[in-house]
């Protein structure tokens, strides 16, 4: 090997090493920075643009209805996650005819069956019917009433192994039951 070639190789080695060092520093810093937001937002409420994104951020599967009436718009217009007091995922679906919320699905993650989740803001303000129904083998509570907007709203809530689900809609009770029973 000539002296010139040896010098070239030595310089190339220095160049590659310095670029690699700087790039590695950047890659490690960026990787760590990517992890920060999920730690910061542990107790905050956060909005996601897709169901997949929220599943990825939370590390759990979000239940979705397989029966979805044509008068509702897919995908959800809002996907909100609140960490405290309970980890709650809320999906809001708009009506195709008047573009206002017509179906809301809340999933409250809690496997403690004895600790009753009390979120009374979800109930219709003036309930006039309260009955027990079966949803996939679980006992659910159906409440029909008038909401704050003066419209007829129905709410069905039941518990699964790891979460309590609330389905609130201003559709018919039959449709609400179909939607609720298709959620998995």
């Amino acid at each position: 090997m000539t002296r010139k070639a040896a010098h070239f190789l030595r310089e190339m080695w220095k160049i590659i090493l310095s670029i690699t060092l700087v790039m590695c520093t950047i890659v490690i810093s960026l990787y760590l920075l990517k992890k920060v937001p999920s730690y910061i937002q542990e107790t905050e409420e956060k909005f996601y643009s897709t169901v997949e994104e929220s599943e990825y951020a939370l590390g759990l599967r979000i239940f979705l209805p397989s029966y979805f009436p044509e008068y509702l718009i897919w995908p959800p217009s809002e996907i909100k996650v609140v960490r405290k007091p309970y980890l709650t995922i809320s999906l809001v679906f708009l009506s195709r005819s008047h573009s206002s919320p017509s179906l809301v699905i809340h999933q409250i993650i809690s496997d403690n069956k004895n600790k009753e989740v009390d979120l009374d803001f979800m109930e219709p303000k003036r309930p006039f019917q309260r009955t027990q129904v079966l949803v996939g083998g679980a006992k659910g509570t159906l409440i029909v009433g008038v909401g704050e907007d003066g419209k007829r709203w129905a709410q069905l809530s039941w518990r699964t192994v790891d979460r309590k689900i609330f389905v609130i809609a201003n559709c018919s009770v039959e449709d609400l039951l179909k939607i609720a029973r298709s959620i998995h």
């Binding site: 990517k34 409420e45 997949e52």
Partner: peptide, 20 residues
């Protein structure tokens, strides 16, 4: 796409922009 940002990307600025 979401898949790229989640699995392949080293950094996703959207995560920071949506911080409250």
């Amino acid at each position: 796409g979401f898949g790229f940002r989640k699995d392949i990307a080293i950094f996703d600025i959207n995560q920071w922009l949506l911080l409250r």
